[in-house]
């Protein structure tokens, strides 16, 4: 019998300026093979990773933002966004991609992955994890 661990990836960096966002995404996609209880948190500049309408043609770098929409396929169904980080940047949930997952047991019904949480709620979630990966 295998033990399922609760893993949370905490994303705090903007995309493209540094490699953190892409590295985190790759680790999440690879790590998904281990079938653990995975969640992602987007905090500070990390919320910029999910901003809609990214177009990297002009900077000659691959736009990896479409891959976030595949997270549901990888059984990553819990995406937490810290509200204070959005507020500080003048953003709302409408500015972000709307990520969902499909429930195979309910005829592929589309379910919500995105959860807006307060600082306190996120602090509680962090306390509940077995492992936290910070990017």
């Amino acid at each position: 019998m295998s033990i399922t661990k609760r893993l949370m990836y905490v994303n705090r960096r903007a995309p493209y300026g540094t490699i953190y966002a892409l590295e985190s995404l790759e680790v999440v996609l690879i790590g998904a093979a281990f079938e653990q209880d995975v969640s992602l948190a987007f905090v500070d500049d990390g919320v910029y990773q999910l901003v809609k309408g990214q177009n990297t043609t002009g900077i000659g770098v691959k736009n990896f933002s479409p891959a976030y929409a595949a997270l549901g396929d990888y059984d990553v169904k819990k995406i937490y966004i810290e509200k204070e980080s959005l507020d500080q940047r003048g953003l709302s949930m409408d500015d972000l991609q709307h990520l969902t997952w499909e429930d195979e047991n309910e005829d592929y019904a589309e379910k919500e992955s995105m959860h807006l949480v307060s600082r306190e709620e996120l602090a509680d979630l962090l306390e509940e994890q077995d492992v936290v990966f910070s990017f």
Partner: peptide, 18 residues
């Protein structure tokens, strides 16, 4: 084209099934 990634085999299997 949609996601800019090549799916893992588990994901491919599931998606083909769907």
């Amino acid at each position: 084209d949609e996601y800019q990634i090549a799916p893992a085999v588990r994901v491919l299997t599931k998606a083909i099934g769907k």
